[in-house]
């Protein structure tokens, strides 16, 4: 029996470039996936990866337990039952920065505390966000002319949301949290392509 020989030069491996919109859609494999799912009578949820990730991230922001001054008292009021930050999935104030993804800079950042705050921020895992709370953390506030107070925590770490007030009321605090959620919702490549809306 003759051995079977295959002439590989005769096999055409040319792949047609998708041109029309329908061909491009078929090329993604989305349609075959959908059809396969329908055959198995499964449920299909269409979304972008960014949207799912952002939704997961904004729904369970875990703040790190760190308060620097009197704004931290207001942070406790926000966490307690009356204002109830648990509505936003944030009730777990983590004692370790490695388990947290949000930092409230609540209070006066003195020059001597500043490297510790920076260290705390650097210890947090990505993705991470920072909310600067109160006049002191925003600009230095009443201590702007002081020799020992940082003139705004954004001198040392990037800040996403600033909440003014001295100290801000819990309602203002919750408004700032909602602003951060809006910001997280519009992050990622999908937002650039207009897919996250």
């Amino acid at each position: 029996m003759d051995p079977v020989t295959i002439d590989t030069t005769k096999i055409k491996t040319e792949k047609k470039e998708p041109e029309t919109a329908l061909e491009k859609l078929e090329d993604t494999g989305l349609i075959s996936t959908l059809l396969a799912a329908r055959e198995r009578k499964g449920l299909v949820l269409l979304t972008t990866i960014d949207q799912v990730f952002n939704w997961a991230r904004l729904s369970s922001l875990w703040p790190v337990t760190s308060g620097l001054a009197c704004c931290a008292i207001e942070m406790m009021a926000v966490a307690m039952a009356h204002h109830d930050i648990a509505r936003f999935g944030m009730e777990i104030f983590r004692a370790s920065p490695r388990q947290a993804d949000l930092m409230f800079v609540a209070g006066t950042v003195t020059k001597r505390m500043a490297p510790r705050v920076k260290l705390l921020y650097e210890m947090m895992a990505e993705p991470k966000w920072v909310i600067s709370v109160g006049s002191c953390a925003n600009t230095g506030g009443p201590y702007h002319e002081s020799y020992c107070v940082l003139k705004g925590v954004d001198n040392i770490i990037p800040v996403d949301v600033y909440i003014p007030g001295c100290p801000p009321r819990p309602e203002a605090w919750l408004y700032g949290v909602i602003q951060l959620r809006e910001k997280i919702k519009n992050e990622g490549y999908g937002a650039k392509w207009g897919l996250n809306k």
């Binding site: 020059k111 500043a114 490297p115 510790r116 260290l119 020799y147």
Partner: peptide, 17 residues
């Protein structure tokens, strides 16, 4: 000494660990 009247407020000093 910062509470002295002749303390130089224009010279910023920073602390690192």
């Amino acid at each position: 000494h910062p509470l002295r009247k002749d303390y130089d407020m224009n010279k910023e000093q920073w602390v690192t660990i």
